[in-house]
Design a protein around this nucleic acid. Structure first.
Lengths: 220, 220
DNA sequence: ACCTGAACACCGTTCAAGT
DNA sequence: ACCTGAACACCGTTCAAGT
């Protein structure tokens, strides 16, 4: 019955604390700096001591994804129309991605039917169902916005992660390197404009009047 | 001077043939079935024999990405308006992704400033600059469409890859498993509708009249 | 000149042996 | 009862030694 082995020595160890340390390790050393041995060393412990708390590395990565998703602000925005609500959620996702550019690919790579996305989907549903759109409509909108955000931020963070981890060998000491010629922009403005294009197009194609000003003025 | 060592024995080996075999191996065994040793075995050779042709595994993965990008149809569509042109490119990307669901994440994970995207970006530029839109406009549109496609298809393929590789241990022999409850849909219709939302929104926000019917009737 | 096996420095994970 | 080092089966990659 006791599913959790509850070991007694390392009191600072737990699924949560290990996942937190893993995220910090990724943030500082990059994804392939996350090693069971490295992570254990960071916690003052041997790799084998992690296994009572975490079944394997994949589960640990799921835990990290859950940590990242929990940083997205999905609280209700009272009195805010669905358009601005969708925009602000998108911006919150971007803030999370830019706080953790080396870890964001984990979010994008984790299959949607894995458990970290279950709670997240429920939080999204709770927010969007309070926003005045019929369910089949906000589901289609949320799906498109999610695809756009995931793709845009993955592309942006991969460029950041690639140029910020020289892996200690090829440090070309030129300040303006040959990198950003490929037209990778990643500005908040461009990202937000894409979201607004989706919202505008959604309203035009799927709603009656197609109005999209977002001053909803809800009394209660 | 002789940068290419030009070995003489294994005549069937070359950068291209190795990359092709790597893609086939990923398609059948999944991404983590691709191993220098596995790949060599598939080619009737030892792992060390690959290194004269490919400097390391990362370069090999870039070569695979180039192979995948080359499958995208970016030929000109004479007499087709920019809207339908953008849609058909998006559908071609989806066909590539669905042909290689286990390999698509490589495309999404490869930083945009790596070389496989240079030629691809030039092909995109060649197509879109022939379509009647000013450069700053089609660049913004292409960027948003790329983000959407990448995100949507990554999410879709990760679910496919996750459920099609039971890794030989957890084969729950229930036909209708607990999987697809998370609302992962991945239909061609939903994907295409997202593209059209972006196009409609782009036209409404960035063009004069905002017309978007796509019958361009170009004479030459 | 070309190829090869052994070897290096790592992985994730397990488990018998210690205390 | 808890922890540990050694060990297993792998990686990517190198290189001295063979032919």
């Amino acid at each position: 019955m006791s599913r959790t082995p509850t070991p007694r020595r390392h009191h600072h160890l737990s699924r949560e604390s290990i996942a937190q340390a893993a995220l910090e390790l990724i943030d500082s050393d990059g994804l392939h700096g996350l090693t069971m041995r490295n992570l254990a060393a960071r916690l003052g412990v041997r790799a084998t001591n992690l296994y009572p708390y975490v079944p394997d590395k994949d589960s640990l990565l799921c835990e990290v994804v859950a940590l990242l998703l929990s940083e997205v602000d999905l609280s209700e925005r009272p009195g805010v129309g669905w358009e601005e609500c969708a925009v602000s959620v998108g911006l919150s996702v971007r803030e999370m991605a830019m706080r953790h550019p080396q870890a964001f690919s984990l979010v994008a790579l984790t299959p949607y039917d894995e458990w970290p996305f279950r709670e997240h989907s429920q939080r999204v549903a709770r927010l969007f169902s309070s926003v005045g759109l019929p369910e089949h409509q906000w589901r289609e909108l949320a799906s498109a916005l999610d695809a756009y955000s995931t793709g845009y931020l993955l592309i942006a963070t991969q460029v950041i992660a690639n140029s910020s981890s020289p892996t200690e060998d090829d440090i070309d000491r030129e300040p303006g390197s040959t990198k950003r010629a490929a037209g990778v922009t990643n500005t908040l403005g461009e990202y937000e404009e894409g979201i607004r294009m989706l919202i505008t197009g959604f309203a035009a194609r799927h709603m009656a009047g197609g109005e999209s000003d977002g001053s909803r003025r809800t009394g209660g």
